[in-house]
Design a protein around this nucleic acid. Structure first.
Lengths: 213, 213
DNA sequence: CCGCACGCTGAGCGCCTGCTCAGCGTGCGG
DNA sequence: CCGCACGCTGAGCAGGCGCTCAGCGTGCGG
């Protein structure tokens, strides 16, 4: 199959993703980082525990000292990733200032995170369905929270007369959808996460009818 | 795992997708439809040949009379799906009339297809990386064609003074990204594909700075 | 200097996967 | 009415999967 060549280039070209610095012990962190890379490249079901352990420089059995199952590894990644992205979105949305600035800030931050941590984000956004029943339900809950944050922001801006939208709920979903899809197509080079974030903030303002003219 | 319950509900609630009517013989078509449903629900790697054959009401061995491998089944789906969506997009983009109407028409048609055939679209858009090397390269080519269609349309509208965009290439990518992501979140109910298409056409016009005020 | 606790490995179990093949049934040309 | 051709099945193979476990090495408290 073709993944090896395609994904290998991307992995070595991409960043090692520094967002797992706090995880200890060292071996557990190395396994987590290896799993993020492997899941992002091949997907959860196409990744073997031998592959994860190999990338972390360990034997397959070592994985089970730190995590009970392969699915638990995915759950950890999803959990931490969602926590982080929801928190970034909420903090930006609840900042002081006019709604158009809050929306621009929220989109810029959210998009920048999806570009900078695109390997993690890809796992978080697209491997969700491989989670077990209970873990899936929990993660969907977090996901709904970020939808609510965006929905409330757009609705508040509309009520305040800053935004001109017919359907705040659908508009909010579309803005979020646009941001999330960054994780699917982004790869380093061409433009920086910061630039894409700024560009998307402008697009979001246009979508809610609040673009500076 | 949780897929069975989640996906089962969706499969039986959703449409059986009529876009494969032309495929014959009958058994080959049933297998194709079964594969689309299974891949959309669980993903390519989590789907077994026994599952596909079972859904089509046949024994596992029957699959290999009509298709050489499981991957070839995915290739057929991707090929036909991409052909169809690229053609829909091109025809709408190359219609007569002002660019703003062409863009609106293209987005409406493209989004409607992604919603109506969301099972097929999900496979087409998100299972791509499971293809073999050569098939992957071919499909990526089709994909680039749809990117070019949208890019040319946005650039032409900008040059004609109908659109106000800073970066036509990035704007076109964002519009396409927004449309494609419909396949990820759409499920029947709430709003019809037609309604979502019309709403997204309006969003696209706003994104290129050509919204009616 | 001993011995225990802990992180880790090599070997491997049981299961399930994609895929194969000899043979069976059915329907159609002669 | 025969016989061949073709679509399909039941049984099953080789290999790879997630996961386990007895035992090895190393470093630290006593």
């Amino acid at each position: 199959m073709a993944q090896a060549a395609r994904a290998g280039a991307q992995a070595r070209g991409g960043s090692p993703d520094d967002s797992w610095g706090g995880v200890s012990p060292d071996a557990a962190r190395r396994l987590l980082v290896a799993a993020v890379e492997a899941f992002a490249e091949r997907g959860f079901h196409a990744t073997t525990t031998r592959d994860i352990a190999g990338r972390a420089g360990m034997s397959p059995a070592a994985l089970y000292i730190h995590y009970r199952t392969k699915e638990e590894l995915l759950y950890h990644i999803s959990r931490v990733g969602h926590d982080r992205s929801v928190r970034l979105l909420s903090e930006a949305a609840e900042a002081a200032g006019p709604y158009r600035e809050r929306l621009a800030g929220a989109v810029r931050t959210f998009v920048r995170w999806h570009a900078e941590h695109h390997t993690t984000a890809r796992v978080v956004q697209y491997e969700l369905s491989a989670l077990g029943e209970e873990h899936y339900a929990e993660i969907v809950g977090l996901r709904r929270r970020s939808e609510k944050v965006m929905r409330d922001l757009v609705a508040a801006g509309a009520e305040a007369g800053e935004f001109a939208v017919d359907d705040p709920r659908a508009t909010a979903l579309a803005v979020l959808s646009l941001c999330i899809d960054v994780a699917r197509w982004y790869s380093p080079g061409r433009r920086t996460p910061e630039e894409i974030g700024a560009f998307y903030a402008d697009l979001a303002l246009r979508m809610v009818g609040a673009a500076p003219r």
